[in-house]
């Protein structure tokens, strides 16, 4: 019976579930499913930077925003094909990620945290004040997408696109982490001095971590713009970073599958939290505290402990969990 919930089966079930969803569910459920898929990208990317490379950076929501703004604006102003706009969005988010990485490489721990908090706030300020480009605080509408001849419904089109991208990029991340890059990240996380003495080029691998996670964030941002049909600055504020962090922590820091579980779990939870009304903040804060205090390894650590087949390479050592 326990074998039924091994990782292979759960992932297979998840794949089928998300594949069947658009055919059977109502538009509300489809939208929530799409959000969950998009957040998988975001949280897997963030987990590489945060959980594997150990860089405490708050810039993620800003990069997510750059992806969304670029994609949306290119679609709106130049009427670019959505696919091309998305690629451009990912490109600019990646470049921004690299630009953040340059100074950030010199900083560690809390210095890095503070610098990236400031960067995130400054980016938000640019989104709200650069009126001639970003349309300021009011944001802008993205023209409706067109997925003909595949499907007449744009929401299903974006859903399918997100599904395919997740299908491609989660295994990509998985492989990256099992490669030299992933091992270098973990070495850096555990001790920069030790990593350096092993001949690991710290600067280079840290930069790779920023760039790869920015790519994931940018992709998620571009999809987000297409999904919502509107881009507004408040979607990218620091509260959103906290939500993203929460996904990684609740799922499991330093675990690809943890990121996936966290994203799906938290999107579901946010829907449940609607019922809490005025107690939402209390419930959300309580959840974060509960997780870090009681199950610091996140959901995936419980799965690893009680179910077979959830072991991962390069997992965090026990004393971290």
């Amino acid at each position: 019976m326990r074998r039924l919930f091994s990782r292979r089966n759960v992932v297979a079930a998840g794949l089928v579930f998300f594949a069947v969803l658009p055919f059977v569910a109502n538009p509300y459920v489809i939208f929530i499913g799409n959000l969950a898929l998009m957040y998988i990208l975001l949280s897997v990317g963030l987990n590489m930077l945060l959980g594997y490379a150990g860089q405490l950076a708050f810039a993620h929501a800003a990069l997510f925003g750059v992806g969304a703004y670029t994609t949306g604006l290119l679609k709106l102003e130049l009427d670019l094909h959505y696919g091309l706009a998305l690629v451009a969005g990912v490109g600019l988010a990646t470049v921004t990620g690299l630009a953040v990485a340059m100074p950030a490489l010199r900083l560690r721990g809390l210095y890095l945290a503070l610098a990236t908090v400031a960067f995130a706030q400054a980016t938000l300020w640019v989104f709200t004040h650069w009126n001639s480009v970003t349309y300021g605080g009011a944001g802008f509408r993205v023209p409706p997408l067109d997925f003909e001849p595949f499907t007449p419904r744009p929401d299903i089109g974006v859903y399918a696109l997100t599904y395919v991208i997740v299908l491609a990029s989660v295994p990509l991340g998985w492989n990256l982490l099992r490669s030299r890059v992933g091992r270098a990240w973990v070495a850096i996380r555990e001790s920069e001095v030790a990593a350096e003495s092993l001949g690991i080029d710290i600067t280079r691998y840290k930069a790779i971590a920023y760039v790869v996670s920015a790519m994931y964030a940018g992709t998620a941002g571009g999809l987000f713009a297409g999904m919502l049909g509107i881009v507004t600055p408040e979607s990218f504020d620091l509260f959103q970073v906290i939500v993203h962090f929460c996904m990684v922590i609740v799922g499991g820091l330093g675990s690809i599958w943890g990121g996936v579980i966290g994203a799906v779990g938290l999107v579901g939870l946010q829907e449940v939290l609607r019922a809490f009304r005025h107690l939402q903040e209390i419930a959300f804060g309580g959840l974060i505290l509960f997780t870090v205090l009681v199950i610091p390894g996140g959901a995936v650590s419980l799965l690893k402990r009680y179910l077979p087949g959830w072991k991962e390479p390069l997992r965090r050592t026990e004393h971290d969990e």
Binding site: Y28, I32, L35, G139, M227, G229, V231, E234, S235, E271
Partner: peptide
């Protein structure tokens, strides 16, 4: 007060 939440 969020666009994403409003669509949902």
């Amino acid at each position: 007060c969020q666009a994403a939440e409003a669509v949902g």
